[in-house]
Amino acid sequence: MLDTTLCNSYLSVNLQTIINNMQSIQEDIGPDVECIPVLKDNAYCLGAVPIAKALCTYANVRTIAVAQVCEGVELRQAGLSAPAVLVLGGVPERLFPAAVEYGLQLTVFHPSTVYALEKLAAAQGKRAEVQIKVETGLNRTGAKPGAELGALATALAACPHVRTMGVFSHFSTGETKESPTAYRQFQLYQQALAQLQAAGIDPPQKHMCNSGGSDWFRASFCNAVRIGRRLYMDNQAEPLTPGTPGAVQEACSWRASVTNLRVVEAGDTVGYDAAWTAPRRTRVATVCVGYGDGLYYPLAEAGGPLLVGEQRARLLATCMDQCFVDVTDIPCRAGDEVTFFGQSSGGATMPIQELGKFMHVEGVYFYSFLSPRVARVYEGLEP
Rank of each mutant, 00 (worst) to 15 (best):
A237W: 06
D202L: 07
T286M: 12
T141H: 11
Y232T: 13
A157K: 15
R376E: 13
P331M: 06
E135T: 05
F366S: 05
G380M: 01
R376A: 01
A52E: 07
Q68L: 12
K144P: 01
K119T: 15
T176D: 13
A157T: 09
E93F: 13
A285R: 07
G213H: 11
G246P: 04
F96Q: 02
Q105C: 15
E178C: 14
Q131P: 00
T176W: 13
F109L: 06
P372Q: 01
R76N: 10
H110T: 15
V377W: 11
G174V: 07
A275F: 00
A224F: 12
G342L: 06
I36K: 00
P245E: 04
A59Q: 09
L120R: 12
G267R: 01
A251G: 04
G290E: 03
R76Q: 06
G72H: 09
E71C: 01
N42K: 02
A48C: 05
Y115D: 09
K144W: 14
I330R: 11
N14I: 00
P37F: 11
F221C: 07
G228W: 11
P383S: 08
A116Y: 03
L188S: 13
L15N: 10
L138D: 02
R314E: 13
V264A: 04
L15A: 08
A52T: 01
N260L: 09
C332A: 09
V85G: 09
Q185T: 10
S368V: 09
L193K: 06
E175Q: 14
D41F: 14
V38C: 08
Q195P: 11
G292T: 08
G125S: 12
M1Y: 11
G200T: 10
S257D: 03
C288D: 15
A313F: 10
C319V: 09
R281T: 12
S371Y: 13
K53C: 05
F366V: 09
P37N: 06
L95V: 02
L80D: 05
K357W: 04
L381Q: 02
R62V: 13
L11S: 03
V13G: 10
C45I: 05
N235V: 12
P92S: 12
D268F: 04
R94Y: 07
R163V: 15
R281I: 13
T5Q: 14
K177S: 14
V87P: 00
N210P: 07
G150W: 03
T259E: 14
L138H: 10
C159Q: 02
N223A: 07
D41E: 15
P279K: 08
M233T: 08
T5I: 06
E250K: 06
Q124T: 05
A155T: 02
D326G: 01
A194V: 12
A266I: 01
A65K: 00
K206N: 04
F217N: 03
T173A: 15
T269A: 14
A82I: 13
N20F: 03
A348H: 09
A375G: 10
H170K: 08
V287W: 00
L156H: 06
G213F: 05
T176K: 15
T107A: 12
A151H: 15
C222G: 04
P305Q: 09
L120N: 01
P50E: 04
T181M: 14
L15T: 08
V33K: 08
L295S: 01
G304H: 03
Q131R: 08
A78Q: 10
G309P: 11
P160M: 03
I51W: 05
E238C: 14
M22V: 11
A192H: 04
P305T: 03
C209L: 12
L120H: 00
G228E: 12
